[in-house]
């Protein structure tokens, strides 16, 4: 029996623009994944802890506030600290190219910019986790 793909979708920080996060959550559900949605205003600590308890395969962060260079590294650092750096961190939002490069070098998964079709995100996750359904 194949393991279900479980994804945590989180909105870190104070930014309340959750339109993208919700659309992605629904698209992932429609692709057959289990999505744990934690809601708004999450600290990196809350996100890392939820990711662990829910035993997700990946964490998707949606950040439109410009705080990505603070929040992505912090979530990744906390996962590592908790011995869970095998959990993939990916995300979406408004992230300039040079910032993306820095985050990729830190081991961050794919970062999807504005205008990305949701199918692209689904395909990315399927490719990353071929042994999941």
């Amino acid at each position: 029996m194949k393991k279900k793909l479980r994804i945590l979708i989180a909105k870190p920080g104070l930014d309340g623009h959750d339109r993208g996060a919700k659309v992605v959550a629904r698209a992932l559900r429609d692709a057959g994944f289990e999505v744990i949605y934690t809601g708004l205003h999450q600290t990196p600590e809350m996100i890392a802890e939820a990711a662990i308890q829910e035993d997700v395969d990946a964490v998707g962060l949606s950040i439109l506030s410009g705080a990505h260079m603070t929040l992505f590294p912090e979530v990744m650092r906390l996962l590592k600290e908790k011995g869970a750096d095998d959990i993939l961190v990916f995300g979406g939002g408004i992230i300039p190219k040079e910032d993306m490069e820095v985050l990729y070098r830190m081991g961050c998964g794919q970062l999807f910019g504005p205008g990305t079709p949701t199918q692209e995100i689904v395909d990315y996750l399927k490719e990353k986790f071929p042994d999941r359904v």
């Binding site: 920080g13 104070l14 705080a67 990505h68």
Partner: peptide, 22 residues
């Protein structure tokens, strides 16, 4: 900025990374 919109000071822990951004 977001911290102000949420009634939080710039030195609130939740404000990290968002001060003066948006």
């Amino acid at each position: 900025d977001f911290p102000t919109l949420y009634g939080r000071d710039s030195d609130d822990p939740m404000a990290r990374g968002e001060v003066g951004r948006c």
